[in-house]
Nucleic acid binder design. Structure first.
Lengths: 164, 164
DNA sequence: GACGTTGGGACAGCCATATTGACGTATCTA
DNA sequence: TAGATACGTCAATATGGCTGTCCCAACGTC
């Protein structure tokens, strides 16, 4: 168990207990956030994979399939099934790209948008309660650390979501 | 899309963009942290489920099966397979409980402990880089917000990990 | 215009991880 | 002794990933 960087020369916050605390809180925090919408999803007969697609399409309408693939980091096959489900339930619709007609531009139908908003409401409750409880000063730190977990090569892809 | 609490009366950090940013960063941060150990796990022929069990047993030796079930929030069935795999590879060993002989006390073998340490090393690199980049002041906020995501009813279970 | 590349879709089959419900046994506790 | 608890295990099922292969339409370029 001798971890080199647990030496007394490291800053306190880089020692093993602080790292483990971060790992555990990230695990439990993520788990509870995602479980917050499981009930509503299963009522709709959808799973978490469907929600992730729904979420990002809501976030960035006219997203292309390949952009969505990059965000989700899954294979074309896996996304295909999810997207077919969502299209079959008329939650998502596809248009041919304008500048590049090979592309499929994805967006939510009115129904899909309503569902995403309902699911987001559950997330909002969870997250805003956590923000409020932690206090405004904590939120910036929360963002900062999480950004540090994202490899630089992907940070711009994620940041692209905030432009819309 | 009209979210009631997006009204101008809410603090800035409770409005939709700030909530979405948190949701997304939590998703990407968690994803990248867990992917950091996938390669090493698949070399061992193990999956993430095995790592989670390994992690918590390392964290709290002589954990009982039911305590582990609470932490992982999965069914006995699912845990059973994982635990059998780990025992079959001599990474985990079980002893009969002392005060209550119905219990099985779980702990890592020397080999299991070495593997967990190796996997933790990858997590440590990821998380400590994020901590260092964000700065010491951010870490407290990071913890605060994540704690707020955990229901009160479970906070003591999670906090119990820090006693050891 | 031919050719290579790219965006998207689909086939088949497989694997990991979770679920439910039922049942059995050993052990603890009142 | 009776009931509750801790653990293990049966069978069946669902979800969401994966690989490998193949295909087509559209784009870009020489």
């Amino acid at each position: 168990m001798a971890v080199p960087t647990s030496s007394s020369a490291s800053p306190l916050f880089l020692r093993e207990p602080e790292i483990r605390r971060g790992v555990e809180l990230l695990y439990f925090g993520y788990s509870h956030m995602t479980r917050a919408i499981d009930d509503e999803l299963s009522v709709q007969g959808l799973g978490r994979a469907h929600h992730r697609a729904l979420y990002f399409i809501a976030r960035q309408p006219d997203l292309t399939v390949s952009e969505l693939l990059r965000l989700l980091a899954i294979t074309k096959q896996s996304l295909g099934r999810v997207l077919n489900d969502l299209a079959g339930r008329a939650l998502v619709e596809q248009r041919t790209g304008t500048s590049d007609r090979r592309q499929r531009l994805l967006r939510l139908t009115a129904e899909g948008s309503a569902l995403e908003a309902r699911l987001f409401e559950s997330l909002r409750e969870k997250v805003s309660a956590a923000y409020a409880q932690a206090g405004q000063g904590s939120v910036a730190g929360f963002w900062q650390v999480l950004e540090g977990l994202i490899p630089e090569s992907e940070r711009d892809v994620v940041a692209g979501l905030r432009k819309s």
